[in-house]
Amino acid sequence: MRRTPIVILGTVAGLVGVLSFHTAPAHLTLGVLPPASAPRSSPTTSVVAGSPPGPGSHGANSPPTSTSPTTSKSTPATTPATTPATTPATTPATTIPTASRSANGAEVNYNYGILSVSVTVTGAKITKVGIASLDDGGNFRSQSIDQQSIPVLEQQALQAQSANIQGVSGASYTSAGFSQSLQAALTQLGFS
């Protein structure tokens, strides 16, 4: 059973028809911001100089201008100087397979135990990342709670930093141990 019934194909055909009207760039009014000090120029048409919009920036209809997220009340001004803004983006491999492939990374120590990361790659992009195994000393219950709690702990840490928000949306899994195991999994998939 790999497909839903044929009855919805009519809907699908209709949708595809509708979509074909919307994929032309001429229909777009996209906001664009270059990285703060990126060495590359953005290929898109409208460029707003400055940093991305922070919580204190303008409303939905006016492009954010010069408010940096690091000056907002929800973000400490002492954000560590991260390298992405000053480092050229890596170019994906020239030959790009389109099938999805998965691998598990090496087990690495993290703050509360040992974890292994699983990764799924489609073409040159990572499309799914998860925890393949997590060992906190053999207690299965606390193991599963640990695993489940990681994203929530990260969210709550963020939420606590900003007084006036009711939730946090974001891809998580950001610890150093997670990154290490992810690297190992990517190596298995031939990413270098």
Partner: peptide
């Protein structure tokens, strides 16, 4: 009001949105 995680600095928010229903973030 919902904060969106800054992907290049995971301990910080990139911006805040006023939620019109649902929001999902993928990485």
């Amino acid at each position: 009001r919902i904060g969106i995680v800054d992907p290049s600095s995971p301990g910080h928010l990139a911006c805040v949105v006023e939620l019109p229903g649902a929001i999902a973030t993928s990485g």
